[in-house]
Simulated scan of single mutants.
Amino acid sequence: MVGAGKRLIRIVLVVMFLAGSCVDPYRPPEISAPNKFLVVDGFLNGLGTSTIRLSRTQNLTESKKPPIETRAIVQVEDEKGNGQTFVDKGDGSYTLDNGNLQIGQNYRLTIRTAAGRSYRSDFVTIKRTPKIDEVSWKALEDGVQFYVSTHDETNSTRYYRWEFEETWEYYSAYYSQFKYQKTQFLYREDNINHCWRTEKSSSVAVATSNKLTEDVISRFPLTFVSGSASNRLKVRYSILVKQYALTAEAFDYWQNLKRNTEMLGSLFDPQPYQVTGNIHSVTDPTEPVVGYLSSHSMDEKRVFIDASELPPWRIPNGYEACDADTYLLMPPPTEVSAIAMGEAGFIPIDAVLNSIGNVHGYRMASSACVDCRVVGTNVKPSFW
């Protein structure tokens, strides 16, 4: 997210209308300005480990990952001034294990960066999150729709937010029996054909029961998983849903963020505006800070779907474009050798024998087609 002060950045795209005329791209100064505002992501956990992630904003033209903020001092303090310091993990994340933060009590976060700049959140009250009643799903025409249901018998929650993690099992296009190492083709000990991949949700999912007589959320549509756009449902799929109780102020923040990031695109959609959080710069009160500090406990629930439970969809495996070719150890002068392909990063799949049973080449393909670890891990998750 790129901000500029506390005003809304409106980018006007100018299109030249004369055919054949010179077009000079318009680049507003906000796009190229060195905006490096602090981003604070995380929450205070009333019944477990609290994790705060610090990074910096970057311009829209930058393709690298946002820079992380390391060597900061992150603390939480109560209204009496008693403080606890988070542990710096060195990767932009800061954790507080067993902080004994009390449900119903008020706390705030303080941050001092390595550059000496100070930031502080408003005081926030830790809320108790109700249990998730159910994570359900329904197979639709071309995919699976997931729902989440919950309730609070005390009618004191009213505002909810959810995040989720998707994990799915998959196989690469080819099973590799060999590996190439220093001009040699050796038998492979590990399996790089069978993997798992995990992705975290990037959308904002919030709901409220504030206008209902009872604090009940029934079958809230959490996410849709397509049966044709990816290989998620090809073998076995799992979704871990995390539920958080929000205050009315936190709900407004996330709802406005959702409108700004997901509901734009036509003249009839809500217009973008500055989303203001509850974290402020002490060093420079005019400096924007991105993020909102919430405080609550967390509940989570995981469900699995096997491919056998779904309709007979033609789910892609993700490797439809892959192809393997045979490369000889001693090829004719006009052909490329197996060793040259190994040096180029291609992975041997299996051996090719000549008429008398000796290996004279290997069937090979690119790593993207053979090594499933390119996009995942071959280490089986503990919950699988």
Rank of each mutant, 00 (worst) to 15 (best):
D78Q: 07
Q75W: 02
E77Q: 11
S93Y: 04
G90L: 09
L96S: 05
G116P: 04
V76G: 09
R56G: 07
K64F: 14
S55K: 08
G99Y: 05
Q58V: 01
N59L: 11
V87A: 14
G104R: 10
E62T: 12
E62A: 01
N59A: 14
E62R: 02
D97V: 15
I68R: 07
D97M: 12
V76C: 06
T95A: 10
D97W: 05
G81E: 10
T70Q: 01
Y119R: 09
A114S: 05
G81C: 05
T51D: 00
G104Q: 00
K65D: 08
A72D: 01
D78R: 07
I52L: 08
Q105G: 02
R53H: 02
A114W: 09
G90Y: 07
G81D: 00
I103F: 15
K65G: 03
G99R: 03
Q75M: 14
G92V: 04
T110I: 13
E62M: 13
K65S: 12
R53K: 12
I68F: 03
E77A: 13
T85K: 01
V87T: 14
G83T: 15
R108S: 01
E62W: 03
L109I: 11
N100T: 12
G92K: 04
G116R: 09
G81N: 01
V74K: 00
D88C: 03
I52W: 02
K89D: 12
D78I: 07
N100E: 14
